[in-house]
């Protein structure tokens, strides 16, 4: 139930917004975040944007793996 799905914000009207994923658009609430703008990627859970997704940090997970790998090679 804690599934949250990444959407892109396409319209903002106060604390309400339209978010899209693929060709699906839905109305979502922005009350749980600060400063959401058009074009931002957000995680949507039960009709609320619960976090902004940073595209750069998606790369971090691969960096985290590199660190583990390096540590293992050293060991």
């Amino acid at each position: 139930m804690c599934l949250a799905v990444p959407h892109r914000i396409v319209r903002v009207d106060g604390n309400e917004a339209i978010a899209e994923i693929g060709s699906i658009k839905k109305k979502v609430r922005l009350d749980l975040l600060e400063d959401v703008r058009i074009g931002d990627y957000v995680l949507i859970h039960a009709g609320f944007a619960i976090e902004k997704l940073s595209v750069e940090e998606a790369e971090d997970i691969l960096d985290a793996w590199k660190e583990i790998e390096e540590a293992q090679n050293e060991g």
Partner: peptide, 28 residues
């Protein structure tokens, strides 16, 4: 990461989902 930490007895929290989880969480 979990196996590595258990083997090395590193008793801490590691964030492997940085693209969606901030260290302090969603403060609002």
């Amino acid at each position: 990461k979990l196996i590595e930490m258990a083997e090395k007895k590193e008793y801490m929290a590691f964030n492997a989902y940085k693209r969606a989880v901030k260290e302090k969480g969603n403060i609002k």
